[in-house]
């Protein structure tokens, strides 16, 4: 099992490295370099030359890549082209906000989807089950902003329960913060819930058709005990995978949701940076998002290894 874990960890690190190369290459090798971007229209050959020298743009790409990555790992994310401020400073508070929103959404979505998915599996093809499959189709077809605006109209404008703009600030206490992020979090929950629910259901049903479950049913155990005690432990590995996949998806869906609710998170920052073509900021945000995505997938695989009883005990 240790070998398996080590291999998965190594693969994860390799993936993150490849990802960072792609992010670096995507923005460095393509036409137009940072010097011309900084100067814009006021660029003269001499001024471009001096900036290139100052930023070390004359070094070969591999050297610049290693420098960029080591600086990044030490917390120096570079300087924004748009306002000349260090990127780390801009990202710090926003990263916290984004993580806060994502964790609130995950804390609601994960347990809820597993409970609902198991309920659907207990009565497969029942009314509740069919309602879920319709809900899934609807959820995968609706863009995030549609769900968000429907929620705003119903919950914020008509009912007036929660604010439609999620303006969060560091001085708020936890209760106020939760109140402010309620709608964006709810939107994210709705975006990922259906899919997680459906996969939970599918993996529980998959296990339900195995002989030892038939045995449990035949010896007269009540339905919920069969599902919770016998089926669920073996369905856990695929469920963990789906949960991780959707949490990773949350990281992406959060970008659109942050823009809808004008939430001061990293997604908003990244979108603004793309519009201003502020490449270093986009790179930094991109690497953080991609790293989180890869990391979540890796954690899921490792948890799946742990949840497999056959691998847990040394032979």
């Amino acid at each position: 099992m240790l070998a398996l874990l080590a291999r998965r960890l190594a693969l994860g690190v390799l993936t993150i490295l490849v990802t960072s190369v792609l992010i670096f290459a995507g923005t460095e090798v393509l036409p137009g370099d940072v010097a011309t971007a900084i100067l814009g229209r006021s660029a003269t050959p001499e001024s471009i030359e001096s900036i290139r020298k100052a930023m070390g743009l004359h070094d070969p790409a591999p050297v610049r890549y290693v420098r960029w990555l080591t600086n990044f790992l030490q917390g120096d994310l570079g300087t924004s082209l748009a306002n000349g401020r260090p990127i780390a400073q801009q990202i710090a508070s926003r990263l916290g906000n984004t993580l806060f929103l994502a964790s609130v959404a995950a804390a609601i979505a994960v347990p809820l989807s597993i409970i609902l998915g198991v309920m659907a599996a207990i009565r497969a093809n029942g009314l509740f089950d069919r309602a879920i499959s319709v809900a899934t189709l609807v959820a995968i077809s609706f863009p995030e902003f549609f769900i968000a605006y429907v929620l705003i109209i119903i919950v914020a404008v008509n009912l007036g329960w929660f604010p439609s703009l999620a303006s969060i600030s560091p001085v708020m206490d936890l209760g106020d913060r939760l109140y402010v992020v309620a709608l964006p979090a709810l939107t994210l929950v709705m975006v990922v819930l259906a899919h997680m629910m459906r996969m939970t259901r599918a993996s529980v049903i998959g296990v339900m058709s195995s002989p030892y479950i038939e045995m449990a049913v035949l010896k007269g155990l009540p339905g919920w005990r069969v599902v919770v005690q016998h089926a669920l432990p073996n369905a856990l590995a695929p469920i963990i995978n789906v949960v991780a996949l959707n949490l990773a998806y949350l990281i992406v869906g959060i970008i659109v949701v942050e823009v809808v609710f004008v939430y001061p998170g990293m997604g908003q920052l990244m979108v603004d940076a793309v519009a201003k073509r502020d490449v270093p900021v986009v790179q930094a945000c991109g690497l953080i998002f991609a790293g989180t995505y890869v990391g979540l997938n890796m954690i899921a695989d490792i948890l799946a290894i742990f949840s497999n009883p056959r691998l847990r005990r040394p032979r």
Binding site: T15, L30, P31, A248, I251, R277, Y293
Partner: peptide, 19 residues
């Protein structure tokens, strides 16, 4: 390698460079 990064993140990177 291309699938290791979420599509939206990758697309944002390319758009920021190419406009």
């Amino acid at each position: 390698a291309l699938m290791a990064i979420p599509t939206l993140i990758f697309a944002l990177l390319v758009l920021s460079v190419l406009g």
